[in-house]
Measured scan of single mutants.
Amino acid sequence: VLKALERTRQLDIPDEKTMPVLMKLLEEAGGNWSYIKLDNYTALVDAIYSVED
Rank of each mutant, 00 (worst) to 15 (best):
residue 40 N to T: 02
residue 46 D to S: 13
residue 18 T to D: 03
residue 41 Y to G: 01
residue 25 L to R: 00
residue 30 G to F: 09
residue 38 L to N: 14
residue 42 T to E: 13
residue 13 I to P: 01
residue 37 K to R: 13
residue 14 P to I: 05
residue 36 I to P: 01
residue 53 D to A: 13
residue 17 K to P: 02
residue 44 L to K: 01
residue 18 T to L: 03
residue 38 L to T: 11
residue 9 R to I: 05
residue 4 A to I: 05
residue 17 K to F: 08
residue 7 R to F: 13
residue 39 D to L: 07
residue 46 D to T: 14
residue 29 A to Q: 14
residue 40 N to M: 06
residue 3 K to M: 12
residue 36 I to A: 01
residue 42 T to V: 11
residue 32 N to S: 11
residue 15 D to W: 02
residue 31 G to R: 04
residue 35 Y to I: 12
residue 51 V to N: 12
residue 3 K to Q: 14
residue 49 Y to S: 10
residue 42 T to L: 14
residue 7 R to P: 06
residue 6 E to K: 08
residue 5 L to I: 04
residue 1 V to P: 03
residue 37 K to P: 07
residue 20 P to R: 12
residue 49 Y to W: 11
residue 42 T to W: 12
residue 17 K to M: 11
residue 10 Q to G: 11
residue 5 L to Y: 00
residue 10 Q to S: 12
residue 15 D to N: 04
residue 39 D to C: 08
residue 9 R to D: 05
residue 6 E to Q: 09
residue 53 D to N: 14
residue 48 I to L: 10
residue 9 R to C: 08
residue 38 L to K: 15
residue 41 Y to P: 00
residue 5 L to H: 02
residue 43 A to I: 10
residue 29 A to T: 15
residue 14 P to G: 05
residue 53 D to L: 12
residue 34 S to Q: 14
residue 24 K to S: 06
residue 13 I to C: 05
residue 26 L to D: 01
residue 39 D to S: 07
residue 15 D to A: 03
residue 47 A to K: 09
residue 35 Y to Q: 13
residue 52 E to T: 14
residue 33 W to V: 01
residue 46 D to N: 14
residue 52 E to C: 09
residue 52 E to H: 12
residue 44 L to V: 06
residue 20 P to F: 14
residue 28 E to G: 08
residue 34 S to G: 12
residue 53 D to P: 12
residue 47 A to H: 05
residue 39 D to P: 01
residue 1 V to F: 13
residue 48 I to D: 01
residue 47 A to W: 04
residue 44 L to H: 01
residue 49 Y to T: 10
residue 18 T to R: 01
residue 36 I to L: 08
residue 1 V to C: 12
residue 26 L to S: 00
residue 19 M to H: 05
residue 45 V to K: 03
residue 47 A to Y: 06
residue 8 T to P: 05
residue 12 D to T: 06
residue 15 D to I: 03
residue 11 L to M: 08
residue 37 K to F: 13
residue 32 N to E: 10
residue 12 D to I: 05
residue 7 R to N: 07
residue 47 A to C: 06
residue 35 Y to C: 08
residue 29 A to W: 15
residue 14 P to A: 07
residue 10 Q to M: 11
residue 52 E to M: 14
residue 39 D to M: 08
residue 24 K to Y: 07
residue 23 M to W: 10
residue 50 S to M: 11
residue 46 D to L: 15
residue 17 K to Y: 08
residue 36 I to T: 01
residue 11 L to R: 01
residue 13 I to V: 06
residue 22 L to G: 00
residue 21 V to K: 03
residue 29 A to S: 14
residue 29 A to D: 06
residue 31 G to K: 05
residue 39 D to V: 05
residue 12 D to L: 11
residue 38 L to P: 07
residue 29 A to N: 15
residue 32 N to H: 07
residue 3 K to W: 07
residue 19 M to C: 12
residue 22 L to C: 01
residue 3 K to S: 13
residue 13 I to Q: 01
residue 43 A to P: 13
residue 41 Y to N: 00
residue 28 E to R: 10
residue 3 K to I: 07
residue 19 M to L: 13
residue 7 R to M: 08
residue 41 Y to E: 01
residue 38 L to Y: 10
residue 17 K to V: 15
residue 15 D to T: 03
residue 13 I to G: 02
residue 3 K to G: 10
residue 8 T to Q: 03
residue 32 N to M: 06
residue 10 Q to C: 11
residue 50 S to N: 13
residue 19 M to Q: 02
residue 26 L to V: 04
residue 35 Y to D: 12
residue 34 S to W: 12
residue 52 E to K: 12
residue 12 D to N: 15
residue 25 L to M: 14
residue 50 S to D: 10
residue 46 D to I: 11
residue 2 L to S: 13
residue 46 D to Q: 15
residue 33 W to A: 01
residue 9 R to E: 05
residue 30 G to I: 07
residue 6 E to H: 08
residue 27 E to F: 10
residue 52 E to D: 13
residue 37 K to T: 14
residue 52 E to L: 11
residue 50 S to I: 10
residue 30 G to L: 09
residue 42 T to K: 15
residue 24 K to M: 10
residue 31 G to C: 09
residue 48 I to W: 02
residue 4 A to C: 09
residue 51 V to A: 14
residue 24 K to E: 05
residue 28 E to Y: 09
residue 1 V to Y: 11
residue 20 P to L: 12
residue 27 E to C: 10
residue 12 D to V: 04
residue 8 T to H: 04
residue 37 K to Q: 15
residue 20 P to S: 12
residue 53 D to G: 14
residue 21 V to C: 06
residue 14 P to D: 08
residue 35 Y to V: 13
residue 16 E to Y: 13
residue 21 V to I: 14
residue 44 L to D: 00
residue 14 P to M: 05
residue 48 I to V: 08
residue 17 K to G: 02
residue 31 G to I: 04
residue 17 K to A: 10
residue 17 K to Q: 10
residue 14 P to C: 07
residue 41 Y to L: 04
residue 36 I to C: 02
residue 22 L to W: 02
residue 8 T to M: 13
residue 4 A to H: 01
residue 29 A to L: 11
residue 31 G to W: 13
residue 26 L to I: 09
residue 14 P to R: 06
residue 20 P to G: 09
residue 27 E to V: 08
residue 41 Y to T: 00
residue 43 A to V: 11
residue 3 K to L: 13
residue 50 S to P: 05
residue 10 Q to I: 06
residue 33 W to Y: 03
residue 13 I to T: 00
residue 45 V to N: 00
residue 14 P to L: 06
residue 22 L to V: 03
residue 48 I to M: 06
residue 12 D to A: 11
residue 37 K to N: 09
residue 48 I to A: 02
residue 45 V to Q: 01
residue 2 L to I: 13
residue 22 L to K: 00
residue 48 I to N: 02
residue 35 Y to A: 13
residue 40 N to A: 02
residue 30 G to H: 14
residue 1 V to W: 14
residue 3 K to H: 12
residue 23 M to Q: 09
residue 47 A to N: 05
residue 26 L to N: 00
residue 33 W to N: 00
residue 15 D to E: 03
residue 43 A to M: 15
residue 45 V to I: 15
residue 50 S to E: 13
residue 46 D to G: 07
residue 11 L to D: 05
residue 12 D to R: 12
residue 31 G to Q: 07
residue 52 E to Q: 13
residue 18 T to W: 03
residue 5 L to C: 09
residue 44 L to F: 03
residue 40 N to Y: 06
residue 51 V to D: 12
residue 43 A to T: 10
